[in-house]
Amino acid sequence: MREIVFDTETTGLDPAAGDRMVEIGCIEIVNRVPTGAVFHAYFNPQRDMPAGAQAVHGLSAQFLADKPLFADLADELLAFLRDSPLVAHNAGFDFGFLNAELARSGHQPVCESRMVDTVQIARRRHPGAKLSLDALCSRYGIDRSHRVQHGALLDAELLAQVYVELTGGRQIGLELASVEPSDAASLQPAAPSRRVRPPRPHAATAEELARHRAFVETLSNPLWLA
C-alpha cells in the first residue's frame, strides 16, 4: 500500500486570514517502508514572515524571496501525491494549508477522506500521554537530536518513523501473510539428511524375565498389591 507522509511550514496558523505555505516535505512509503522517493520544496509566500513563525522554522522572507510560487510546482506536487492516503501530524492543519494553496492556483482540493491523522492514532494508542512529534519520538526511541528547528522534510522523515511504530512496528512490512501457498514450502528449512538405522529388538530374554521375577519377590507390600 502506497502512502505519503507529509508536513508543511507556514507563515502562521490560518490560511483564511492570509497565511501561506512556505515549505512542504513529502515521504513516500509502501507497506510502511520508506522507498527513498521524496518531494520537497520551498515557496515564496508573497508576503512578510512574522517573527513568531520564523522563530519556529527559521525561514525568512529574504530566503524565500527567490523561491518559486506554489502555483509553479502544484502540478509536480499533485503528480507525486497521486491518489495515495496522506499522513500528517495534526493533519487538519496541513490539509487546510494544502487545499488553500491548491484553490489559489486553480486546482481541486485534496479530499479529506484521504487524510490520516497521526495525532488521532496516537490519542487512541496512548490516551492521556503527550502527543507532540517530539514526545512520540522519545516514546519510540527515534533519534531527533538533529531537529533544532522545525523543517517540513525533516519532520516528515521523523513522522514516517513514528507512523510505522503507531501502526504496529516494522514487522508489519514483512508481508508474510501474502506468501502464496505454493511458495510457502520454499520458506521451510530443509530437513537435515541422516542415515536411518534399522530398528533394534527390545524383547526381554528368558534370563532377564527370571531376574525381574526374583527382584519383585523381594519387595515388601508393593503398591500394585495394596
Rank of each mutant, 00 (worst) to 15 (best):
V33M: 09
D134H: 12
D134I: 08
W224G: 07
L98P: 00
S113P: 00
G58W: 06
R170T: 13
D117F: 06
A214P: 01
A17V: 03
D66M: 09
H107P: 00
E101P: 03
R2N: 11
A16Y: 01
L59I: 12
P45I: 14
A88F: 00
L13R: 07
G58A: 13
T205Y: 03
A206M: 08
L154E: 04
E28G: 11
R114K: 08
V56R: 08
A91T: 06
A206F: 05
N90R: 03
L131K: 11
A185F: 01
A185K: 01
M115E: 05
M21E: 07
L73H: 08
A160R: 00
F215N: 09
L77R: 05
H146Q: 14
L131D: 05
Q46K: 14
P192A: 13
G173C: 03
A177W: 02
A53G: 09
R194D: 05
P222K: 13
L174G: 04
K130Y: 02
E207G: 10
R213C: 10
L136A: 08
R211A: 15
Q46V: 13
P201Y: 10
S193M: 03
A100W: 01
R144G: 05
A156H: 02
H57C: 11
R200L: 13
L77G: 04
R104S: 02
A16M: 05
R32S: 10
C111R: 12
A53D: 08
A206I: 06
P199T: 09
V179E: 02
S105Q: 00
Q108D: 14
S193E: 11
G141P: 01
E180F: 03
C137D: 11
D183M: 10
D83L: 03
V110F: 02
N31Q: 13
P85A: 09
F93I: 09
L174T: 12
M115Y: 01
F95R: 06
L187Q: 07
E76Q: 14
E165T: 06
R20G: 06
Y42T: 10
Q108C: 03
V162K: 03
A185N: 03
E208K: 13
Q46E: 15
A16Q: 07
A16F: 01
L77I: 07
T10I: 04
H202V: 15
A185P: 00
Q46T: 10
Q54N: 12
A177V: 05
A122E: 05
D94N: 10
D155G: 06
M115F: 01
L219I: 15
V56C: 06
L174P: 00
S182I: 07
V38P: 02
E28T: 13
L225A: 14
V148W: 00
R124Q: 13
S84Y: 08
E207T: 15
A53V: 11
H89R: 05
V5S: 02
I29N: 05
A204T: 07
G96A: 14
R20Q: 14
I121A: 10
H202D: 13
P181H: 02
L69H: 03
L166I: 12
E157L: 04
F39P: 10
R32I: 05
